[in-house]
Simulated assay, not measured.
Amino acid sequence: MISASDLKAGMTFVQDGKLIRVLEASHHKPGKGNTVMRMKLRDVRSGSTYDTTFRPEEKFEQAIIETKSVQYLYSQDDVAVFMDLETYEQYELPLDTIEQEMKYLLENMEVKIQFFGDEVIGVTLPTTVVLRVTETQPSIKGATVTGSGKPATMETGLVVNVPDFVEAEELLEINTQEGTYVKRAGK
């Protein structure tokens, strides 16, 4: 059991039979009364997010999440297919539960999938990925990194704000946590 005051962003716990992931957690002390924990939570199975508060002493069952290295193979209809790199076993995840992660996934990319018991519950991306720019405005001669930037569409459909000197077909390193440009990765 884990108390509400010990829950941090990224942790997963079980509440009323639901698997809940903490997106944000903070202590809040109102003018009068006791301290409460403000939390933004996501139901892992349904994908719905909601805000709530808990008393710091409330207890929850911490979920034991295991990860496996897999390769993203392809998506078809409404599922994404991944393959275990050791056993070659294949796992399917509904696309609507990994909608954000799909913006960073290319075929044959290695990622980790998360398990709760035998149930596949999510994908863990690397901190950065390299994606090709498919569409952006022409580069501006003499542009510097400090400019306001311009939008660029990556090969996965992700739109990222990039410096003015970036051109189409360039490879860029993208931060998967924030969806931001990190640096050029070549052509």
Results as ranks from 00 to 15, higher is better:
Ile2Asp: 03
Ala4Cys: 10
Ser5Tyr: 02
Ser5Lys: 12
Asp6Asn: 03
Gly10Ile: 00
Met11Ala: 15
Thr12Met: 06
Val14Leu: 13
Gln15Val: 15
Val22Tyr: 11
Ala25Ile: 04
Ala25Asp: 03
Ser26His: 07
His27Cys: 12
His27Met: 15
His27Val: 09
Lys29Asp: 12
Gly33Thr: 13
Gly33His: 10
Met39Lys: 03
Val44Met: 15
Val44Phe: 07
Ser46Asp: 04
Thr49His: 11
Tyr50Ile: 03
Thr53Cys: 09
Thr53Gly: 11
Glu58Arg: 12
Lys59Val: 14
Glu61Gly: 13
Gln62Thr: 13
Ile64Lys: 08
Glu66Arg: 08
Thr67Pro: 03
Thr67Asn: 03
Tyr72Ala: 04
Leu73Ala: 02
Asp78Arg: 02
Val79Thr: 14
Val79Gly: 11
Val79Lys: 01
Val81Gln: 02
Asp84Trp: 00
Thr87Phe: 01
Tyr91Ala: 00
Glu92Phe: 05
Leu93Cys: 09
Pro94Met: 06
Leu95Glu: 06
Leu95Phe: 13
Asp96Trp: 11
Lys103Val: 05
Leu105Phe: 08
Leu105Asp: 01
Leu105Trp: 09
Met109Leu: 13
Val111Ser: 03
Ile113Lys: 00
Ile113Arg: 00
Gln114Cys: 15
Gln114Arg: 11
Phe116Asn: 03
Val123Cys: 09
Thr124Val: 15
Thr124Arg: 13
Leu125His: 06
Pro126Asn: 11
Thr128Ser: 06
Val129Phe: 01
Thr134Asp: 02
Glu135Ala: 08
Glu135Met: 14
Ser139Ala: 07
Gly142Leu: 06
Gly142Ser: 10
Ala143Glu: 08
Val145Leu: 07
Lys150Phe: 05
Thr156Gly: 05
Leu158Cys: 10
Val159Cys: 12
Asn161Phe: 12
Pro163Ala: 09
Asp164Ser: 04
Glu167Ala: 09
Glu169Cys: 05
Leu171Glu: 03
Asn175Leu: 13
Gln177Met: 07
Gln177Gly: 10
Gln177Asn: 04
Thr180Ile: 15
Lys187Cys: 06
